[in-house]
Design a protein around this nucleic acid. Sequence first.
DNA 1: GCAATAGTGTCTCTCAGACACTATGGT
DNA 2: ACCATAGTGTCTGAGAGACACTATTGC
Lengths: 225, 225
Amino acid sequence: MQKMMQQVVCTVDVVLLTLQDSALKVALLKRGRAPFKDVQALPGGYIHPDTDADTRDAALRMLAQKTAIQPPYLEQLATFSGPARDPRGWSISVVYYALVPFDVIGQAGQADVTLASVDKLPRLSFDHRAIVNTAVQRLRGKSQYSSLPCYLAGEAFTLPQLQRIYEALMGEALNKVSFRRKMVEMDMLEAIAGEFSAAGAHRPAQLYRLKPELRDQLTLIARGL
Amino acid sequence: MQKMMQQVVCTVDVVLLTLQDSALKVALLKRGRAPFKDVQALPGGYIHPDTDADTRDAALRMLAQKTAIQPPYLEQLATFSGPARDPRGWSISVVYYALVPFDVIGQAGQADVTLASVDKLPRLSFDHRAIVNTAVQRLRGKSQYSSLPCYLAGEAFTLPQLQRIYEALMGEALNKVSFRRKMVEMDMLEAIAGEFSAAGAHRPAQLYRLKPELRDQLTLIARGL
DNA sequence: GCAATAGTGTCTCTCAGACACTATGGT
DNA sequence: ACCATAGTGTCTGAGAGACACTATTGC
């Protein structure tokens, strides 16, 4: 006779972040069913052991199904767990965070995706508020010393644009000369022949892109002891 | 009629690390049952939803049960998942890593705990080899710019001892003056009145300890752009 | 020419590392 | 006295930030 073993609810959630007008935003969806019906939540859902290769694969599936977005950057954030976070029972959520350029969200054209400023979150389902805050902390932290923010820029971008992204994330103005020095020293960008003129009445800026070989890999700044 | 839903096996594993003679070691246990009976494995086991407050709590329980150690530092590493890593089925392992001073392991006196050098791992169960490698990478990475290595030292330690720990982790010699400057600048240590003379025929060194208020919180080095 | 932003040359000030020195114990 | 290691004062070279200058567009 097998004893009934208490079950663990296994889910995956994704914190999809983007930068709109120098403000960091999260993608939210209104839940269609209980619990937290009609309350905003992160894109997420149950793991499907029969089809998901792993939790990362499940995260990509969530994004594809619910937002039709294939993110240029996706990384595991952390796993949240406990008896109280989900009314359905003792649960685990393996959380990933993704970065996308703002225009990618628009193109995906999912009308039911809401963008909320991470500094002024609405009421969220489960412990999603804490999860978003953790993701923002992680992004801000890593932005200090890595190429992570590049994934918030589009495929091609100018150095001034990239600097504005870094400044938005770190919340402080950066020295132009030092910033450029760092970027060349990190050796992760390559200039594109074409330029950028749409800006208006001034000198156009050189366009850059991430070196293809570094596409899915962060570049770090030397630092430390 | 409820369809039989394929189950996810939920476990927690702990990578318990220590430094012995300037070599980084992992604590391993020989498994007592299938799968991987008699093969070395990380301390770990099933989540107990009826008693564990969360996965961190479960990790502490694993350590207490299997090694009788209460680690001074415990942090979530990552979650590993997939259909193939455990023959019992599609599984998730939420992995934590812990740091302890070497002498704490001896005191715990668990005869069945083996220490293996992380550079020369024996055959391990499941995907535990990859897990250990991830933990070592994380520890080495964080050692570059945080107070993390302090938890490998005992309650009290001298600056030369601490420097040797950092050097062992980073695999390179550090400048004595710079190291000391960094330590005072990080402002996380406090001198203890008593000194340290056991060393032998030379000047004794000042003993330090982590400031109590920073006990469970890393101190980071300013860095970056 | 002028406004506006892109991009660079250069100076200075700070800080990390090297070195040498002093300090303090044991033998 | 001598050795060994702890701990500090100081010099120098590299790098970050500030500033000013040049470059290139639209009007």
